[in-house]
């Protein structure tokens, strides 16, 4: 299956995504420039981390108008799996493809560290087959990952199983301490209602090889391959 990785000017996680996808059996990674309106037959898309368009105005705010984004929206609307990592998550919220917004981290600290997240809902092709409650160790590196959504939206997210990840300690318990950036309800990742679009602040692609310190993140890409093979993703 072909997985397209979008490069915006300022993306810096695109090559990491490509290298990780090469480690996953059944994945054929492909870079897509942000000015392209051709997704080159991609079966799934990744918007990587970085600082698209220099993070000017607000992170992701300019990238939402890159020519490729119209195709990304069309692809997502037809049920295609889309994963936004870090800055990619910010782009997806700014584009209105995912609910909520990402504010400055609490104490305006750029946080670059290992963190743990708990899979709260696996209702997504990116997490299919991953048991809910599973704790994953992944790298985070961001200054603006403080997830915000109003109370009503949060109630809906929980009800509909759209909270994919919560920050937690290694045992899977959430606390103020494990919630390093101040996100509401410790939310680290959310999906759209259908589950095919997933946005997350941690970097699974930088946590996909024991050499890097953790291979936990690889499970997302393996889940994708599995769910695509099973034809679970309707497009």
């Amino acid at each position: 299956m072909k997985v397209g990785v979008v490069t915006f000017p300022g993306s810096n996680g695109d090559t990491d995504c490509i290298e990780t996808l090469k480690l996953v059996e059944g994945c054929e990674p492909q870079l897509i420039w942000h000015k392209s309106t051709d997704l080159m037959g991609a079966d799934a898309l990744i918007l990587p981390g970085g600082f698209a368009h220099g993070d000017y105005l607000r992170p992701g705010s300019i990238a939402q108008f890159s020519p490729v984004m119209r195709e990304v929206a069309r692809f997502a609307a037809s049920g295609g799996p889309v994963l936004g990592i870090c800055n990619g998550f910010q782009v997806l919220t700014e584009a209105g493809l995912l609910p909520g917004a990402l504010l400055r981290n609490q104490y305006i600290l750029f946080h670059c560290a290992w963190t743990h997240v708990r899979v709260s809902s696996n209702r997504s092709p990116w997490l299919e087959g991953v048991e809910e409650g599973t704790v994953l160790r992944m790298a985070v590196a961001h200054g603006q990952g403080n997830y915000f959504a109003d109370t009503e939206t949060r109630r809906r997210l929980v009800e509909q199983g759209q909270v994919a990840f919560e920050y937690c300690d290694p045992e899977g318990n959430t606390s103020g301490e494990s919630n390093h950036n101040g996100s509401v309800d410790s939310i680290a990742g959310v999906t759209n209602e259908a589950g095919n679009i997933l946005g997350m602040m941690p970097h699974p692609e930088r946590s996909s090889d024991p050499l890097l310190g953790s291979a936990d993140g690889r499970v997302l890409f393996e889940s994708l391959v599995r769910s695509m093979a099973a034809g679970a993703v309707g497009r």
Binding site: Y107, N146, F148, G182
Partner: peptide, 13 residues
């Protein structure tokens, strides 16, 4: 300007 209901880490700092 951030809405009153939204946390403003810059303002707090």
């Amino acid at each position: 300007i951030p809405k009153p209901s939204v946390n403003d880490p810059q303002g707090l700092a």
